[in-house]
Write a protein that binds this DNA or RNA. Structure first.
Lengths: 257, 257
DNA sequence: CGTTCCATTGAGACCCATCAATCTGTGTGG
DNA sequence: CCACACAGATTGATGGGTCTCAATGGAACG
């Protein structure tokens, strides 16, 4: 648990923040050096629980996590998926009580950073406070985009849209290649994210595969026809507020959007 | 447009922020004195448009607004309702391009504050940056709560939940009394907020009235049986992250939650 | 090789959408 | 003060997208 171990994984955090905000060398260095306690989580284990009053934020170093809410009778809504590099509970900096849980969807490594260390780094590097704030705002923008899906898109459009979004987000941290990425979620998880039943997700996925829009051999998702998938989803990446549009892992450079 | 006009309306902003964050006298004074350009909007008019790159934030001084997203074919999703006192586009501080629009749902007065003035006040009163950040985080928490509704609640539960939430939010700025408040929205708007059709909203509202849970004579909503409505909605106000639980306008003091 | 998790398939039902009238209240102009 | 327009609420009929229940299949794992 020394401060500088896991440097490669820590770079994902920098890469992630830099995809949304310009960072100078001192800021990158400060981020890399953040003291963090590294912990492993098994598939299905919670990193943070609703009702908790965390004193730290967690950075995903590897693996995959989601944020979810439960109703009393067990109905579950997944509110967000988080590839490595994300800080799923950054909000706990200013909201004392967690109103949802963060769960690992595969074996996952997370770094826990005391809130006081975040406050220290933002007072030493004032622009970082805006970078972190901005992260939470992008978070909210993605919630809004998901709300449109939940409220107004058909099942086919929802699933297509989710796949488009995940490609860009994996690509932003260098975890997509050839429009292919590892999405370690079950059809049941997709259902809980998109407000559908697992049975219906299964049937829609079959449609998308039959139409050769995607292939999905767990956990590898490949987008076979980006243009048609994007059109079906009516996908407009503006809500992700990325500084630059996707590189080789997503769309070819120079492609129209 | 002098700086100190509309003081009563400006107090709503302070009241709103203070419902979530403790403010001292200097901070309140600084908020009240924020230079703002006051503008009137007609019912249906947009305060901010998706695609805009605003240089200011807007405070609702009176009226009612919503944030909405449109799909290419006209489908609309309302992502948030905003009673007076709210700053619906606070995110524009750090996200350059609006990914949605803000529209007035009745004749509305809004105060526009240049971003630079917000930055100035937060550097003079550093705790205010946390208050504003916190506002955007609560915003996101409400999005998550709506996502649960859109994805996993029945139509009856969604509508009941929305009414519970609006009562508490109106009450927080002193605009509810006797569990009654003015909600100037059409059934069509409710439908677009909750992912339903206007016809179905109409039928569900009839059920809720028949069961004497609420009365709704536009624009006045009265909650007739808080306990049953809360139970139907499975409403837990934790996600609103209010400092104190509702006063006389909402639940009686001392009532269990 | 039983267990377990997950994907798949079929049948039937239902919630809710869609379409299309009709009704009601409000405001407007003559 | 009436005729008219208009927005929004209401009602009925019909259909479809999606859910639920239930069973089967396949792959990984100890």
């Amino acid at each position: 648990m020394t401060r500088l171990d896991r440097t490669p994984e820590r770079q994902l955090l920098v890469r992630r923040l830099a995809s949304a905000t310009i960072l100078d060398e001192a800021e990158r260095e400060a981020l890399i050096s953040l003291p963090m306690l590294v912990r492993d989580f098994a598939d299905g284990q919670d990193l943070v629980r609703g009702g908790d009053r965390p004193q730290h934020c967690c950075v995903l170093l590897s693996g995959f996590a989601c944020r979810y809410l439960l109703l009393a009778d067990g109905r579950r809504q997944i509110a967000a998926f988080h590839p490595p590099g994300d800080i799923p509970d950054l909000q706990s900096l200013h909201l004392q009580v967690m109103d949802h849980s963060v769960g690992a969807m595969m074996p996952t490594v997370a770094g826990f950073i005391q809130h006081e260390h975040v406050h220290r780094i933002t007072s030493q590097h004032p622009r970082l406070i805006h970078a972190f704030w901005r992260e939470t705002l992008i978070d909210a923008a993605i919630f809004r985009a998901w709300m449109v899906g939940l409220g107004r898109r058909t099942a086919h459009e929802r699933i297509a849209h989710l796949i488009c979004e995940m490609l860009l987000r994996f690509d932003a941290v260098g975890l997509a290649e050839n429009r292919t990425f590892r999405l370690p979620v079950t059809q049941n998880d997709i259902a809980d994210a998109l407000g559908l039943s697992n049975v219906h997700v299964n049937r829609v996925l079959q449609d998308l595969r039959r139409d050769e829009l995607i292939s999905w051999q767990r956990p590898d998702v490949a987008i076979l026809d980006w243009d048609r998938l994007r059109d079906l989803a009516m996908f407009d990446p503006a809500y992700l507020h990325m500084r630059s549009l996707p590189g080789a892992g997503a769309a070819e450079p120079g492609e129209e959007h």
